[in-house]
Amino acid sequence: MPKINMVQAINLALSQEMEKDDSVVVLGEDVGVDGGVFRVTDGLIDRFGPERVIDTPLAESGIAGFSIGMALYGLKPVCEMQFSGFSYFAMHQMESHAARLRWRSGGRFSVPMVLRAPYGGGVRALEHHSESREAYWAHTPGLKTVIPSSPRNARALLVSAIRDPDPVIFYEPKALYRAFREDVPDEEETLPIGKSQIVREGKDVTLISYGASMRPVLEAASELSARHGIEAEVIDLLTVSPMDDELFTGSARKTGRVVVVHEAPRSFGPGAEIVARLVEKSFLFLEAPVRRVTGFDIVIPLYQRETEYLPGPERILKAVRETLDF
C-alpha cells in the first residue's frame, strides 16, 4: 500500500472514478491545465481531456448552477470551489435548486453532484481563505456535508460522495492536505456517508470532532493516556449532516463526559447540534456539562493570531480536565 498525502488521495479518488464512469466530470477555476491551486486535480486533464476536466470562467454560482444542469442530465459533476470562503456565491444554487430538486419533483429529478472546497485555517493564508462554515451547508435539508480527516478516509469518502445519488458538499481540511501520509490501498475503497467512526476507544471521556480538528483531538487523547492514564474515546463524525448520533450518544452513555471540538465559530456551530442530541438522547447519563472547544464567534483572524483562535491540544486538554473534575 503506498503512503500518500490527502491531496494525492483525493486525486486518486477522482481519477479512479473518472476511469470507471464516463459520467464523472471535474470542473472549476484552474482545475484543468493548472491542476487546481492545491494541485488536487493535477494531471487529470492529460488523462481525461478538457471536456471532462473543465476550466470554467470565474463564477461560483455559475459553476454550481452549471453542475446542477449537468447532473439533471445524468452526469456526475464534481465541481471545485477554489476556497470555501468563495463558495457563498454558490450557496444560492445549492440551497434553492441542488438540495431540493429531488424533493420538488417527487423523485423524478436528482442532482448527483459533489461540491468540493478546501476549508479551515492553519496555512498562513490571506483573508477569506481560512474560514470554517460547514454549518451553513449542514443546515440545508437535501444536502449532505462530508468532511474527511485523513488521506485514507478522504479517498474513500470522496468515492462514496461521487456515487451518492444526492448532492454532497465535500469540505477538505486544507491544513491536512500535506500534513501527513497514510497507507491508501490502490484497490477500491468506500466509506458510508452518514456514518461516524470510533477512531480510539476509551472509557473516561468522549471527544467528538471531525476534519482538521481531528489532529489536535488525537494528540490530546494520546497525551491524556500517556501522561494521565485517562482513556478518551474519540469519535470522528466524517459526515456532519445528516448527522449520525448513534455512536456518540452511545459513547456518552458509557463515559458520561463529553467534549466537542471544531474550528467553526461556536454559536450555532455543528457542536450545538451535537450537544442538543446528547441532551435529547443521553441526558440521564451525563456526569458533567458538555464542553465545546471551538473557534470563537468572530471572523478567523489573519495568521499571526490564528494559533490563539484555533482549538489546539492544550485547550482541549484543559476542557477534558475540567469535565473530569466537575
Binding site: 466530470v25 471536456e51 471532462r52 454560482s61 455559475g62 454550481a64 448552477g65 452549471f66 453542475s67 446542477i68 444542469g69 449537468m70 447532473a71 439533471l72 442530465y73 445524468g74 452526469l75 459533476p77 444560492h92 444554487q93 434553492s96 435548486h97 430538486l101 420538488r104 419533483s105 429529478f109
Partner: peptide, 25 residues
C-alpha cells in the same frame, strides 16, 4: 420539462449545464 423555477434568473444556468451534458453525450 423542469419544474417551475421561482428564484428569478437562477434557472438559466441549469439550461447551460443541460446543454453541456447533451453535447458531451
Amino acid at each position: 420539462n423542469l419544474p417551475v423555477s421561482i428564484p428569478v434568473g437562477s434557472q438559466t444556468l441549469h439550461a447551460v449545464g443541460l446543454g453541456y451534458a447533451m453535447k458531451y453525450r
